[in-house]
């Protein structure tokens, strides 16, 4: 039995296998419509989420399976003081696979160590969000046809942005990927990730100036400054509008730039960009569902 807590638990071969399965699902969804008949997914969401939870649920329904779960901690036994370990053991009696989101970092790992069914990390605080990375990777693959030889700009909250951390980890295993880290000084990428890039001789540049590096980028990954990650409201208000992407700011961008965003957005990408063919963030949403379908199939060893 296998879980997915960190994207690096998947080898590059396995990532590519998931991409291939997702592409096959896109090509022939009917072929997969009954693969999970009789199986149940438990969605344990201790933190609010619309997109990820609905994506998991849609993925399981489209595979013919069923879904049970909760969408906030207050409606679970955690409100009564139950531990993550006990919740995982209990839910293992009801479901064949668990998707867990939790505000505390490491909670899904604790669940996976105690559950008797596979656990998927659906986001743990500011730490990891591997299935968003799967969505990002399928989007990059569908737009660029490759994971190597790319200049990837990551913009916004690089400190608490778990999707950024997971995406960097996944892409840093490919040849000639150059990261450009664009953030206010208060929200720079954590040192340990930079240390890890340096130790692998992966080039990265840090800047506060999005406009200056725009022409170099193949991919621009925008992120939201997340209110829920700040202990101090004033600090959040001061930083939340650091980067707002507007059509004017794309004047010197490549014509085949891909603009990604894990969503939800607040105001960091102007709505006017939605109709630009370079905007890929709603493709990402759909791709996320296909990759979650592929992942559920893999972890349940259905095909």
């Amino acid at each position: 039995m296998r879980s997915l807590i960190d994207i690096l638990e998947l080898s590059t071969a396995e990532l590519e296998e998931l991409v291939a399965t997702a592409e096959d699902i896109i090509a022939d969804p009917q072929k997969y419509a009954h693969k999970c008949d009789g199986k149940k997914l438990a969605t344990l969401f201790f933190e609010p989420s619309t997109r990820t939870r609905l994506s998991f649920e849609a993925a399981m329904y489209e595979l013919g399976g069923n879904v049970l779960g909760f969408s906030e901690a207050q409606s679970s036994s955690t409100a009564k003081g139950e531990s993550v370990a006990d919740t995982a053991k209990t839910v293992s009696c009801y479901a064949d696979i668990i998707a867990m989101r939790h505000p505390k970092e490491g909670a899904p790992l604790v669940a996976s160590l105690n559950a008797s069914v596979p656990v998927i990390n659906a986001g743990d605080g500011g730490h990891n969000h591997p299935t968003q990375t799967l969505a990002d990777l399928l989007t990059i693959h569908r737009k660029k046809g490759r994971f190597d030889n790319l200049t990837v700009g990551l913009c916004g909250d690089l400190k608490f942005g778990r999707t950024v951390h997971s995406l960097i980890a996944a892409l840093s295993r490919y040849e000639n990927v150059n990261f450009v880290l664009i953030s206010p000084r208060e929200l720079v990428l954590p040192n340990y990730i930079k240390e890890s890039l340096k130790s692998k001789n992966i080039t990265f540049t840090e800047t506060t100036d999005l406009q200056a590096i725009m022409p170099d980028l193949d991919i621009l990954y925008m992120t939201r400054v997340q209110r829920e990650r700040f202990f101090n409201e004033e600090e959040y208000l001061r930083l939340k509008d650091s980067y707002i992407l507007t059509p004017e700011k794309l004047y010197n961008a490549k014509t085949d730039l891909s603009i990604l965003h894990p969503l939800p957005r607040v105001n960091e990408i102007s709505v006017a960009i939605d109709s630009d063919p370079r905007a890929c963030y709603f493709d990402q949403v759909l791709n996320g569902k296909y990759m979650r379908m592929a992942l559920i199939l893999k972890l349940l060893e259905v095909c």
Partner: peptide, 13 residues
């Protein structure tokens, strides 16, 4: 010491 870590909330881990 990370206040966001699950080990800071759940003492048994």
């Amino acid at each position: 010491k990370n206040p966001r870590c699950i080990t800071c909330t759940e003492q048994e881990i």
